[in-house]
Design a protein around this nucleic acid. Structure first.
Length: 223
DNA sequence: GCGACAG
DNA sequence: ATCTTGTCGC
């Protein structure tokens, strides 16, 4: 297969125009889902995990793992083309659709304002938030590694997200609105999902499920 | 030209 | 992302 990045870049610019950052504090949220993607066999297989949790108790309602042949390489700025096929597959298996989706990666904190969280939000027509463990683009003021600290992530003078110190002495999280939510609400909901760990619960569970970590193993045994 | 660069 | 033990700091 051949890849036409100029074409995909144009596609992202077109899609970015459809992203809507609506400020809608929604106190009625009852289900929040998280996603995480991993790879197997030298990257030839993409493994996407999605998990739906209750809010605010964070009880696991259901989870699914989709394994598909990898069809696109990793290219910074084009991550969604590599991961969304498996994520859509996992999403279609969900019986209980969530009210909000936390995606591992950037939302609009992207060169063309279309990180994987925004792209997925458009494809699913769902409110999404980008929760990234490292920065793709933008600048910010360094801050103390004290839980609760927040500083805006800027591109020139435009705010594209937030740099959140989610836990003491840990690297910060890069939060940005994905789709159908505002920057302020995105930060609000991620904070609501923090339980003393660096990652918000939906993301932490998705990570544990995708990588079969202790948290998930323990869950499977006791249930 | 050079460095940066989600997962 | 993934391959991997011990180790340092909270």
């Amino acid at each position: 297969m051949s890849i036409n990045l100029a074409q995909l870049k144009h596609s992202q610019q077109q899609l970015a125009e459809q992203v809507r950052l609506v400020d809608e504090f929604n106190p009625a949220i009852k289900l929040i889902a998280g996603t995480d993607v991993g790879f197997e066999q030298d990257g030839t297989v993409t493994r996407a995990a999605i998990v739906t949790l209750t809010f605010p108790d964070f009880d696991v309602v259901e989870y699914h793992i989709a394994r598909l042949a990898t069809s696109f390489p990793y290219i910074p700025g084009y991550l969604s083309f590599r991961e969304y096929p498996a994520l859509l597959n996992a999403w279609q298996q969900l019986k209980h659709k969530p009210d909000l989706l936390l995606v591992d990666g950037q939302g609009i904190a992207h060169p063309r304002r279309l990180g994987i969280a925004s792209h997925l939000g458009l494809l699913l027509d769902m409110p999404t938030i980008g929760v990234a463990k490292s920065k793709l683009c933008g600048q910010y003021q360094e801050q103390a590694k004290q839980a609760g600290n927040v500083t805006p992530l800027l591109d020139k003078h435009e705010q594209i997200g937030w740099v959140l110190q989610s836990k003491n002495n840990c690297n910060p999280l890069f939060i940005s609105a994905g789709h159908k939510i505002s920057q302020t609400s995105a930060l609000h909901w991620v904070k609501q999902c923090l339980r003393g760990y660096r990652l918000p619960e939906p993301t932490r569970w998705a990570d544990a499920i995708a990588s079969n970590k202790p948290l998930f193993r323990k869950f499977k045994h006791g249930k």
